[in-house]
């Protein structure tokens, strides 16, 4: 309650550089508090400056370590850094173990580095649905670069594409052969590849195969960098590729195109999420809908027919839409 009342002041305090305000605001955004819209309106004039780097790849590839080492280089160049490190929420309990900070210990005395761990909280695309809002907060707080580390992904958790200005895909020499690289999904979204743990067997071969595949895509130049992140090897080169990519992106208008696309995606995503949440809440309370669900559970009614019945019932939809909106209210409690 205390937090809800002070959302606007919190935003003011954050913009004034108060170090406690940013973490609190992130919690409000992450918890989808009713104050989010107000917070976003307040900080909007201060956003759009930061460059957002997405780092994704399979579990254990070394994403956190790459992020940590890139942060060192960025700090040496005087850039302030915000890091969002995501780990999965349990689909069973909602709990999560967030362990990415372990690899990022060296920055704790540096006020130029802000690290926040996030759990996916029911989202399945590798990033929580609220990450975009958190990135905006970091942006408004004056971070030059924001590094977003996804959960360890498989082939299709690709939210990061609609989140970052550039995507680094971190893989290891064991991540697969040329055919893997030809498949849709993870290998398709990289703007830059880092083959990490490159001291292991097969790194050179993988680089050659990847480059051969990438050469088949005309008009794009996607760099493949060999790294041994834990020793800092190849990180300077990776950083150079980032810089090169960013310059090209700014010159050819690709950055703005990407950001426009992102705004659209964010809006539609947000609408979906809110509608879904409002509906689930309704489904929880509405007796008629519960009874229908019971019929489906008992096998008496197939889900398709049940669905048609719900969506075909104007009265029902009106009831749903006109209910007191609980969808945004949990932070008011």
């Amino acid at each position: 309650m205390k937090r809800r009342q002070s959302a606007t002041q919190l935003a003011e305090r954050m913009l004034a550089g108060d170090s406690l305000a940013l973490p609190r605001l992130i919690s409000l955004v992450e918890g989808e508090s009713a104050a989010v819209a107000e917070i976003m309106r307040r900080i909007a004039p201060h956003t759009g400056r930061a460059y957002c780097v997405g780092v994704t790849g399979p579990p254990g590839a070394g994403k956190s370590t790459v992020v940590d080492k890139l942060t060192v280089l960025m700090r040496q160049r005087g850039l302030s850094v915000g890091i969002v490190a995501v780990d999965p929420s349990s689909p069973f309990t909602g709990g999560a173990l967030l362990g990415d900070r372990i690899r990022m210990q060296q920055h704790y005395l540096d006020p130029g580095v802000f690290i926040r761990s996030m759990a996916t909280r029911g989202s399945h695309g590798g990033l929580p649905g609220t990450v975009q809002g958190v990135i905006k907060l970091l942006d408004a707080s004056g971070r030059d670069v924001i590094l977003v580390e996804t959960v360890g992904v498989g082939q299709t958790e690709l939210d990061v594409v609609n989140t970052a200005d550039v995507v680094i895909v971190v893989v290891t020499p064991e991540s697969g052969d040329a055919v893997q690289a030809m498949k849709a999904g993870l290998f398709e979204i990289a703007d830059i590849f880092a083959i990490n743990k490159a001291d292991r067997e097969g790194a050179q071969r993988m680089k050659a195969e990847l480059e051969a595949i990438l050469a088949m895509k005309p008009g794009e130049s996607i760099a493949v960098v060999l790294t041994e992140a834990h020793r800092g090897v190849g990180i300077e080169e990776l950083y150079q590729e980032l810089e090169r990519y960013r310059r090209a992106q700014e010159e050819n208008g690709e950055l703005e195109r990407r950001r426009r696309h992102r705004r659209r995606e964010e809006f539609l995503e947000l609408l979906q999420r809110r509608i879904r949440r409002r509906f689930l809440d309704f489904a929880d309370k509405d007796g008629q809908l519960k009874a229908l669900t019971e019929q489906v559970v008992a096998g008496e009614l197939d889900p398709y027919s049940a669905c048609a019945r719900v969506l075909g019932d104007r009265h029902w939809l009106d009831k749903w839409l006109s209910q007191e909106g609980p969808a945004l209210s949990e932070a008011e409690g």
Partner: peptide, 30 residues
């Protein structure tokens, strides 16, 4: 792990932490 299974979001920062490091993490992680 137990608290994770109980539905909490647990941030684990590993061994050999100074009190300063711990509090710094607690503030940022809210």
């Amino acid at each position: 792990l137990g608290l994770r299974d109980a539905g909490f979001e647990v941030i684990y920062t590993g061994i050999r932490q100074t009190p300063e490091m711990i509090v710094h993490a607690a503030v940022q992680e809210d």
